[in-house]
Simulated assay, not measured.
Amino acid sequence: MGNFFPGRTDHELLTQLALSPAAEEVVIFGCSEEVSTRLQPLISGRQVRLLGKRPLAEIARIVGSKTVLAVPHVVSDYTVSQDLMKAYQGAALGMRVLLPYELFPAGLGPDQALALGPGVKVDDVLDGAFARGGLNPAEVDAFMANNSWERRAQQVRELLDES
């Protein structure tokens, strides 16, 4: 879900995710024409749906208990400098998040997200994520409480008070 654009989308990782036998179905929200053109010849016969942008509320209604949100970003100075909003949104929707380990947000822990790194097979990480299932409601509530804008403002106040 989100925007796909040159320089940020890791097309190799996106292809591995789309073709993984670990996933029963792959849904790509916000699929650009470029992504659609690249994937279309590869996904013939696979359960892959390429959809345009959808409001977060609509995505939340579609999410199943074993849904994993993958963030197929290229690792670059630009993407490393971001605190990936999509990863936080996925965890807040109860999904485990899968992303390159260099982009792992500080606010997510191993209960919410799984990292892909050198030598790690996408299929193995997906199998593990699907086996664990989605986050339970208590985990989602705790995650949202710890990552709210109010909590972040409180952390900034605490840091300012210390200096």
Rank of each mutant, 00 (worst) to 15 (best):
M95V: 11
G117P: 02
A131Q: 12
A138L: 14
V80H: 05
L135C: 02
A142L: 14
V120G: 01
N146L: 08
Q82D: 00
R151I: 00
D83G: 07
V120A: 07
V122K: 09
S81Q: 07
P105F: 05
R151Q: 10
W149G: 04
G133H: 03
N147I: 06
G90D: 13
L114G: 00
F104C: 09
Q155W: 12
A153D: 01
L99G: 03
V120D: 10
N147D: 06
D141E: 15
A87P: 13
M95G: 07
P137G: 01
A87M: 14
V125T: 14
Y88Q: 12
A131I: 02
P110C: 00
T79A: 10
R157E: 12
F104Y: 15
L99M: 03
D123Q: 08
N147Y: 03
R152P: 00
P105R: 03
F104A: 08
S148N: 09
L116N: 09
Q89V: 09
L93Q: 08
L84D: 14
L159D: 10
G90K: 10
L114A: 07
M95R: 09
D111H: 06
V122F: 10
E102Q: 10
F104R: 13
V75A: 12
A87L: 08
G128L: 11
A113C: 08
G109L: 01
L116I: 15
L126M: 11
V120P: 00
A87N: 13
T79V: 08
A113I: 10
D127G: 01
L84W: 06
R151Y: 02
N146Q: 14
W149N: 04
A87S: 14
L114I: 12
D83I: 13
L98C: 06
R132W: 07
L159P: 00
A87F: 06
A91V: 05
G109W: 02
G107N: 02
V156E: 04
G90N: 03
D111Y: 04
D83R: 14
L93M: 15
L126D: 04
V140Y: 06
R96M: 07
S76E: 10
L108M: 05
L114H: 07
A142F: 01
G134R: 03
Q89P: 01
P137Y: 01
Y88A: 09
M95Q: 09
V80S: 11
A115V: 07
E150L: 11
D77N: 14
A153G: 13
Q112W: 07
G128Y: 13
P105G: 03
G94P: 04
L116Q: 12
V156G: 02
G133F: 07
S76L: 05
A129Q: 03
P110F: 03
V122P: 00
L103D: 08
L93E: 05
R151C: 04
M144H: 00
V80R: 15
G117Q: 12
D123F: 07
P118V: 13
L103S: 12
V122T: 14
A106M: 05
S81P: 10
L116F: 12
G119R: 11
Q89F: 01
M85P: 00
P100L: 01
A153I: 12
Q89T: 13
L108R: 08
V140N: 01
A131T: 13
A129I: 11
E102V: 06
P137D: 14
Q155T: 05
L99Q: 03
